[in-house]
Design a binder for these strands. Structure first.
Lengths: 159, 159
DNA sequence: AGTATAACAGAATAATATTCATAAAATTAC
DNA sequence: GTAATTTTATGAATATTATTCTGTTATACT
């Protein structure tokens, strides 16, 4: 017997992921045509990819400028967290304007990506939220002047 | 007469965006129920949001680890581009493993986010691609040890 | 080889997307 | 303010698609 979930992805899975990463609203019929399979087979695989946590979310990329989210910043911060357990990062992750929190190698402990309306709202965010988080020793923020590329698309191997 | 496309988003548009950002595969029927409207009206608005370039893409978030993409790095680089026109950034943007390219304020000119299989493949990428791009003066790469949060979701205002 | 398991195809059905004609609402012009 | 124009909405009809299910084939395991 084997209760273990099969974690390996075959060529077909990768093709499905490639198509859905490019357009999550593609129909099973369309994918079936491209992969020369039956729609029902595609559906079955997609559901498994969801269950296996390979597919995390179907999301919509929205133009930030159209929502008046004109400011993007990267913030490096040192924290006095005990090694391993990082409550600071978890606190930061709770803030909706915080898009990313990475624990990085080197002197600065965390790299945080934040998107807000403008610099005033960034300041407000720092005052109202960041300053309330204990253990933060220092902050250095870097403002993005222009974004040339921004996507999460992964490079999916052929096989 | 007014041929100009209306750029403003009303409360309903924002609600649709909120729902679709959370789940791009939500049906028009479901949205119609939640917003107390007819499915056909939802569809019409969605199409307009696509045309108006508010909606950029429907995409699928995939677990990077399941594709063996274990390495995430941020790379700061100085370039000798002439002010304004940045061919370096455009070259960087062409590389699939490069997820983000930002022109940042301060000493370092660009901040680049890269995802690869491992440190060896990052080195290969730098050797095969970065080094071929002219104008790059210096590079400083920062390896991510752990990602606590990573999403592109925008904070969509109520109104 | 034989059994168990997983993956697929194809048909039937359920649900959804899409179109369209019409009505209501909002906007604009005068 | 009112008429004309445009925008947005509804609801029904139709086209597509999703989903389920059954039987079959392929695969893995012993």
């Amino acid at each position: 017997m084997s209760t273990e979930n099969n974690l390996s992805l075959d060529k077909t899975d990768l093709s499905i992921l490639r198509l859905m990463q490019e357009n999550s609203r593609i129909s099973n019929v369309q994918m079936a045509k491209e992969l020369d399979m039956a729609p029902s087979a595609i559906l079955e695989r997609v559901k498994k990819l969801e269950q296996k946590n390979v597919i995390l979310q179907y999301t919509t990329r929205i133009n930030p400028a159209r929502l008046n989210l004109k400011l993007l910043a990267f913030i490096s911060m040192k924290a006095s967290d005990s090694i391993g357990c990082s409550t600071t990062a978890l606190e930061l992750a709770k803030i909706p304007e915080v898009q990313e929190v990475h624990h990085i190698a080197g002197e600065d402990c965390y790299l945080v990506k934040v998107r807000t309306t403008d610099s005033a709202s960034l300041m407000a965010l720092m005052r109202d939220h960041f300053s309330k988080i204990p253990n933060i020793l220092s902050i250095r923020s870097t403002i993005v002047l222009e974004t040339v590329k921004e996507q999460q698309q992964l490079v999916i191997p052929e096989k």
